[in-house]
Nucleic acid binder design. Sequence first.
DNA 1: TATTGTTATACTCTATAACTATA
DNA 2: TATAGTTATAGAGTATAACAATA
Lengths: 159, 159
Amino acid sequence: MKDQVDGILQQWKQIKPELDCSSMGVVGRLRRVDNQWKQQLDTVFKKQEMSSIEFDILATLRRSQIPLTPTELYKTLMLSSGAMSTRIEMLVKRGLIERVYSEQDRRSCKVMLTDQGITIIDLALHAHLENMDNLLKPLNNDEKNQLAALLKKLLLAQQ
Amino acid sequence: MKDQVDGILQQWKQIKPELDCSSMGVVGRLRRVDNQWKQQLDTVFKKQEMSSIEFDILATLRRSQIPLTPTELYKTLMLSSGAMSTRIEMLVKRGLIERVYSEQDRRSCKVMLTDQGITIIDLALHAHLENMDNLLKPLNNDEKNQLAALLKKLLLAQQ
DNA sequence: TATTGTTATACTCTATAACTATA
DNA sequence: TATAGTTATAGAGTATAACAATA
């Protein structure tokens, strides 16, 4: 069975027979899968009225179990400090998080989930997990583990 | 050896022991790999003074071997017609493509690579292939083929 | 009326840097 | 001086819809 990438590789083979495009068969497919997944994941986030970044902020706070500073958050999530401030302000306005100002260092604050924030992120997490389970339906358990192992090898190599 | 995703999964296990987060181990890793790759691919495109979308337009024209209409291009590359018009105009201004107006249907045109466009995309393609080869260095040939096969299975299932 | 392609508008998101307050 | 966090600005990129020309 042929997918779109097979067609693309075949076209290149015709016009550039001397080139080895095999890496495109891996990279191109991974980027396409990511693109499809990204869209489906965003659909579910939108239903909870949040962006994927906002989900990541709330989820990071939830699983840390302790309040984090904006600096810790933007470094973890690889955003600029300005972008993080904007996102935090949005979530504060919606009552999902609150800022707790430090006693020791009065420049600093910690970002903390509100009760409502915890409720919302727990709901969103459930929907997100179900969504990801669906994305992986085409693979059996062995294949999922294989895929995870290959991706982990790539991630560990780049760090 | 543990990667970042292992740490995240472990945190969720602590706070939500009843949840099966295994899908996150696959989806999360794929999304992280894509993110890293995207950045490295963009770096090389930037050196050729193009965006990844512009590369895709030029590459699509190159491997098709025939001029394509803006409509064909925006449907293939999944952009809006307006966004495609803007991109085409940029590439025309830089002399990489030109519009050939149709005789049969005077609303329509075909987008064609110029000689300079062919030179540029051929150079960019070489750099891009080399870049992708580097991204896949952590895997041996068997592993690359396994990864491609798993991703293909996912792509075929979603179509 | 429908379609092709362009243009105008508005929106989202971001990085950068200026800025305030504090260390 | 350096750091934590916010705010202001500008930029990139897009989708949407209005538009002109043609089918």
